[in-house]
Nucleic acid binder design. Structure first.
Lengths: 92, 92
DNA sequence: GAGGTATTTTGAAATTTATCTAAATACTAA
DNA sequence: TTAGTATTTAGATAAATTTCAAAATACCTC
């Protein structure tokens, strides 16, 4: 459904993206990191999938999630062109 | 309250920011641009103010809103450092 | 097939958000 | 001070979102 803003509006979903930066994780591993039910995390993952911010790959029993960095960076690009280029910070 | 993500989650609020890029506008001018009541727009403006994304200045009868580009760009900076630097596009 | 683990889906409750109308505030001008 | 314009606040309702427990799906192993 491609609602990136909506997907990014929830703090749990943003944390999920952050943890996927380091490495791919299974739904169970992601779920274990938050104090909510796995049904809830599954729902958050669905929203992230629909926004194309993550991809999932079914393995034996588990489903492994990966960050779709490309989509995220395209989103950042659009934002930064829409709202003025990001300044070159050159401290030192 | 500084909830930038929350403030940016709503499409009307994002449009308000976009229209303030061109030039400052009064609450009434902003309100006139959307098919919702001015009370609703006033509420959206409050959320944008609390997120520090806009500033307001009371003039005679009107209140003029301005985009706080600095806060927006800091937000972009944080995002882009968190999720990998934005590529240097150098098409010609 | 029976049981076990991993994950998603369903359906419902709770919370939050967006919206409206009406009332309140503030200022101007006659 | 009365009337008018601009904006916000209050209170209520509607719609969307988050969450949970329980059921469903899928796959693996005995």
């Amino acid at each position: 459904m491609k609602d990136i803003w909506g997907a990014l509006a929830d703090p749990i979903r943003r944390e999920i993206l952050t943890m996927l930066q380091k490495e791919d994780k299974t739904a169970g591993e992601i779920s274990a990191a938050f104090p909510v039910s796995n049904a809830t995390i599954s729902h958050h993952l669905k929203i992230l999938r629909e926004a194309d911010l993550v991809t999932s790959k079914k393995e034996k029993q588990t489903i492994t999630y990966s960050l779709n960095l490309t989509v995220f960076q395209e989103f950042l690009m659009q934002l930064s062109t829409a709202f003025g280029r990001i300044e070159q910070e050159e401290q030192s």
